[in-house]
Design a protein around this nucleic acid. Sequence first.
DNA 1: ACCTGAACACCGTTCAAGT
DNA 2: ACCTGAACACCGTTCAAGT
Lengths: 248, 248
Amino acid sequence: MTKQFSSVWTREMRQPKTSGLRRDQIVTAAVEILDAEGLSALSMRKLGAKLDSGATSLYWYVANKGELLELALDEFWGMLDGADPGEASWREVVTTFAYSFRETLLAHPWAATLIGQLPSMGPNSLRLTDRLRRAFVQAGFTGTDIYLSSGTVMCFVLGQVMPELAWSNAYGDAEPDRDALIEDVLELAHEYPEMVEEYRATPPMSVATARALAFDYGLLCVLDGLAARLRHPRESSGVPDESAKMQP
Amino acid sequence: MTKQFSSVWTREMRQPKTSGLRRDQIVTAAVEILDAEGLSALSMRKLGAKLDSGATSLYWYVANKGELLELALDEFWGMLDGADPGEASWREVVTTFAYSFRETLLAHPWAATLIGQLPSMGPNSLRLTDRLRRAFVQAGFTGTDIYLSSGTVMCFVLGQVMPELAWSNAYGDAEPDRDALIEDVLELAHEYPEMVEEYRATPPMSVATARALAFDYGLLCVLDGLAARLRHPRESSGVPDESAKMQP
DNA sequence: ACCTGAACACCGTTCAAGT
DNA sequence: ACCTGAACACCGTTCAAGT
């Protein structure tokens, strides 16, 4: 049973020129709720109330909640700055983009979840893709490598941030009794003494700086890897045939 | 308002030795529903029905739905094979682990979502962490780099898979009229003619192989980056101070 | 120790009816 | 063209009551 694909972006919009609510008001209000209370707190009823209208009125502008979230997600993509080449080196451009993407994701955690659930094909998403594409062309990538290299950076940031969000979800934003939590985890890990010992051997630091350090390390790996691709455009990994075997 | 942290793993379990349902039966059934129908289809009521019991009976074994999902997520971590050093090179070990992680995520998409929402501190998660740790020690990483390098690989895979899942969510598993979809996207991207043209210039391939290719490319970057770290243990990225500035 | 049913406060969505 | 209210089929969770 192949579900027919559909998206807010692939169907005719309603006439934009009339009275009453407007779609962008709805989306703005939705993003406000998402930012303030998180993905699970956004309901059509609450959103309707915030707009002084019935929940069901929203269905005039949006086919269902999924479409609303697609629109919110595209708002998120619109929040990302730059990747403007300027006169900086490509490593600098990519680095500042990666950091700003990370910061924006951390500020709007609902977006990270949505990225795994809804396709991003709205105008802001496309505009960002094109900006990135230009940056990587300028860096010297050509052909398919343009798309592959920029995609690698995007995915890297996303993957780094996701587990980070899990902790802030379960833990709250502040770090109240994080020492107690750490002791809990170390206790749970008592079967793996090397792990525990290695943790105790590392200088103590806040969760935030530990995460930032990990991000920095990973970014360095990605950048070095991209630099290598830039030098030798066509190589393949250790077990190249696996990739073809995986999904025929 | 800092929410008090709690997790299934940090509180006393109920006596395991009695009659009736057992927690592992519940979790197994939950995973079956998740695999068959996805995260949004799992409800306490449906799970109760599947186990021939009332929905509310489950609350004897589990404090809330979140705990149930924590348990399911740990089941997922238990599904991952290996990272067994053996006699293979570290690049081979990491590569096969990355591919198997990817495959398992694609087979259990709900897990990817949960990774961004719940902390992973169950026994299977810890065991995997330790296996990875040993593999990276064997590869030659030391100190903090052990954790940083293995984390980079984990995050890389996760980040690659997430957007992939978005499409299969919206699109279904088969690829029915993907040509129509592609035309839709290209139409939406008409403001960026270079993007469109570049797409048309690349040889056509299935979505699956395109994704596998991107995965391969990114993995190559990460591996090369890790190899560079292995040669020069301590370096820092282009804008190191940013990382400290981000979250004080 | 374990399970039940009723009840509470919610959901997303449809649809006939209003203006 | 836009909005409403009632209604349907769901949710997660609590809690007194059963065995």
